[in-house]
Design a protein around this nucleic acid. Sequence first.
DNA 1: ACAATAGTGTCTCTCAGACAGTATTAT
DNA 2: ATAATACTGTCTGAGAGACACTATTGT
Lengths: 255, 255
Amino acid sequence: MSSRNKEAEAAFLEAYDASAFERPSTAVDTVIFTVLHDALHVLLVQRAEHPYKDCWSLVGGYVDIHRDRTLKETAKRKLEEKTGVKTPYLEQFETIGNKERDPRGWSITTVYFALIPSQDITLRSGKGAVDIKWLKVEGGQVTEELAFDHAEILQRCTERLRNKVLYTSLPVYLMPKLFTLGELQKVYELILGSPIEHKSFRRRMLGAEILEESGEMSYSSKRPAILYQLKKSQDPYFFVRNLEAAGKSAAGVDV
Amino acid sequence: MSSRNKEAEAAFLEAYDASAFERPSTAVDTVIFTVLHDALHVLLVQRAEHPYKDCWSLVGGYVDIHRDRTLKETAKRKLEEKTGVKTPYLEQFETIGNKERDPRGWSITTVYFALIPSQDITLRSGKGAVDIKWLKVEGGQVTEELAFDHAEILQRCTERLRNKVLYTSLPVYLMPKLFTLGELQKVYELILGSPIEHKSFRRRMLGAEILEESGEMSYSSKRPAILYQLKKSQDPYFFVRNLEAAGKSAAGVDV
DNA sequence: ACAATAGTGTCTCTCAGACAGTATTAT
DNA sequence: ATAATACTGTCTGAGAGACACTATTGT
């Protein structure tokens, strides 16, 4: 029993002028993380156009209301254009909207973050970018100067990733198809920036029952190690207890 | 050492036409929770205009790029217009953008959620709404039919609140200035939908060191109880272990 | 006295940290 | 044999759950 009057509404929509009010520009940016040479990296593109021409920036672009059905689709489209692969993990992080972040005026961007194994990826800059590369992230920062407010976004997003790693299985999405527990632990440690006691780690990961033995072994070090793979049910696992981590911080919330 | 060419950029901005591309409409909606008569309630307004005229909807509105400096400011402005008070807790929840959610076409809304004590609030509908009221939330739902996709938003947001209550002190923001631990526990339980063992609860809350005795006592029940208040440092507390809760669920993430 | 609510004592259980010990390989 | 890496056994400690207990009020 709706109180909605369909006919009156249809008439209203008929007369509606979408351009009557000034609207902020709307973008989607994605912080694409991977692990390369035992370090966390983020994918950056060099801007081909003003503003911030030639500066490095996160992978993103404007919402194309004729092409994209949802914001997430926009993120996926841009990501696949640049990496050529579908990401195993894509999460909405936050939305930033204000009048200062873009010199052209009021602008909104919805930031996603993606975790993606570095294997099989061949980067392609494509239009809108003159170059594209992975850059090492240290302390939430990269060595290049970033366009817009992307440096702060990267900082917060890295902090969020670090926080979630304390109680989730997210790093499995950074791993290749087959990996050893030792390799997985290294990825946890490199995101957290502190070592994890290795017996605890194995207990925790195996107890989550999200991994299965692949049947194959890794012979890349002294003693061979079991190669695991992610089980079919690909959802991230949430542990009921946090890992301890030096200098951990709560999620930042300001009012 | 920026690669940014300031003069060229200035020239570009001079020639920039902000209306060159079609933009989605951009709104902010806030799920305002409170506790009333031992039940979780959400603040809803009845729409004065099409579309969904006379339907109930979340508190929200369009970003006014001349008036609002940030998205959060938009949320606060709307919230204070309706309730007359500043909320002690406001968190960005998620942003939804697609072409189906509004009959007028591509639309984006950034959803915040607020926790607010029900005391001292006198609602005012103001312009844009013919009426305003608190409605009981049960199982993430209300009895009225909601405009747009607000029913799904409310559902997810309630689920998120429930999840966060398992490991944070968020419910303190729903309490009046002074409250007893028993009253606080009731609020936790009513959000979770399941009882909490009361000794564990006291240990946990007092161990967090976010509350202090006010010096006053509550005489509203048989034995008087200590009235606590929130300490100055108003940040939410994150516990390292979750409460157990019947039918708990992980945060939903789809790719 | 008794019911009702506030608050404590203390045992168990789960799971992370610590760390010593065993296993399997290359050299 | 030794070093290096993989993996296990098991103790401790923190903090939640369970539940019996005491304390203070109104009736």
